[in-house]
Design a protein around this nucleic acid. Sequence first.
RNA 1: GGGGAUGUGGCACAGCGGCAACUGCGGCGGACUGUAAAUCCGCUCCCUCUGGGUUCCCUGGUUCGAGUCCAGGCAUCCCCA
Length: 378
Amino acid sequence: MSAYFTFDIIAEDPATHARAGVLHTPHGDIPTPIFMPVGTKATVKGLLPSTLASLGTKILLANTYHLSQRPGSETVAEMGGLHDFMQWHGPILTDSGGFQVFSLGDYVKLTDDGVRFRTVDYDGSYATWTPEENMRIQQLLGADIIMQLDQCPGYPAERSFVERAVELSSMWAERCWKAHTRDDQALFGIVQGGMHLDLRLRSLAHLEACADFCGYGIGGYSVGESHDVMFESLGPLVSEHMPTGKPRYLMGVGNPTTLVRGVGCGIDMFDCVLPTRTARMGTAFSHEGRMNLKNARYAHDAGPIDERCSCPVCTGGYTRAYLNHLVRQKEMLGGILLSMHNIFFLLDLMARARRAIIDGTYGAFLSAWMDSPAAADF
RNA sequence: GGGGAUGUGGCACAGCGGCAACUGCGGCGGACUGUAAAUCCGCUCCCUCUGGGUUCCCUGGUUCGAGUCCAGGCAUCCCCA
C-alpha cells in the first residue's frame, strides 16, 4: 500500500456481501462500487473528457499494450503523462496488456520471462515484454492505478493450462511488485485461476504473500462461461477469502446484471467495453433490457431510449426515431449519444447500488433487479 | 436523318450454352463482457419449403438444355447532323 492511496469502507450491506467505500487517489476520490469506462487508446471512443465527467465518470481505463504501440509510452511521458495527454484530470487505471495476451491468442508467445507479441493490429513487428518492461511502460504512462502483467486463460480451458496461467501470473506479480517504483501509482495484483476455486485461492495466497498490493484485480472471468459457472467460484472467492480492506476489481465485467450480482459478492470496481462497443453498434441498455436501435420498430418512435433514465440523451429530447436514423445512416453522433447513454446507465446503476448499500437495502435492490425484465436480457 | 451502345432480383453491377443467377449497396434480424470491433454473423423471388413453382425488356426461333446464340419488336443512353 502507498501513502497516496487509501481505501475507506463506509458501509456494508447486512443482507449481502456488498460494501460501499471511497478509494482515494492523487487525482481524486472514487466512490465504490464504481464502473470505469474504457478508453483503450487514451480516448473513450467519441466522447470528450468533459462529457465523461458530466455523465458521472470518476475513473477511466487505458491500455498499456495499445499505448505502447501508438503513440508510445515515451511520447505520452514527454507530453506530461496520460492525464495531460488526454486531458482527463481524474483518476486513470492502465491495464497491463495481460488481456491482449489472451485476446491476441495466436500472435503471442509466452515464456517464464514474459511475452512476445506479434503486433498484428499495428505494423506486424514483434514486441517483447518482461514484467519489468511492462512496469517501466506503465510508469511512463503515469496512471493512478496500474495492473500487474498477467495471463488470462480463457474458458473452457484444461485445468493444467489454468494452473500454468496462475503460476506465470504469480511469478510476474512478484516481479512487477519489485520493479514498480513510483509510489504515486497504486499497483494491483491480479487473481487468476479460471473457474477453479482452489486455483483462485492459490493465486490469491501468493499475491498476498509476495507483496503489499494496493488492490486486487480478478481476471479471467466473462470469457465465455455462463453466469452460474462464473459466480460459483467468484462468489466464495470474494466474499469469503479476499482481504476486506483493499479494493476488489472484477476485470472486464460487464453487463448490468453481472455488475449488480458482483456488487452483491463484494466487488468494488468494474470495467467493460460493452457499453461503448454496443453503443457504436446501435444497442442501448435500458431497464427493459437491450434495445437494438437499428430495429425498424423504432423508426417512428417519439419516446426517449429509456423513460426511467435521466441521462442527457434521454432527457435531452433525442427520440428513438432520431437515434434509429443516426444509427442506420452510420452517423457518428449515433454512437456518441448511445455511448453517453450506456455509460450513464452503468454509472447510475452503480451509484444507485451504492446508495442502497449505504441504506442497508442492497438485498432488495439486488432481487428487484433480478426480477426485472432487464435481468434476463443481460 | 446517320452512327454507336445498353436492357439481369429495391438500386448498382457480374454473367459469354447447364442458373434461382457473382459482388456491392439497401432492407430485415442477431451477436458483442480488462476494445485486432463505427466490427462481425445470418436472412433477403414465390410456395403447402431437406421439396416444388415461376424468373434475367417483349415475341418468336435454334438447342437435350437459353440470362447467355439467332430474328423481329419495344425502351433507354451517347455521338454526328
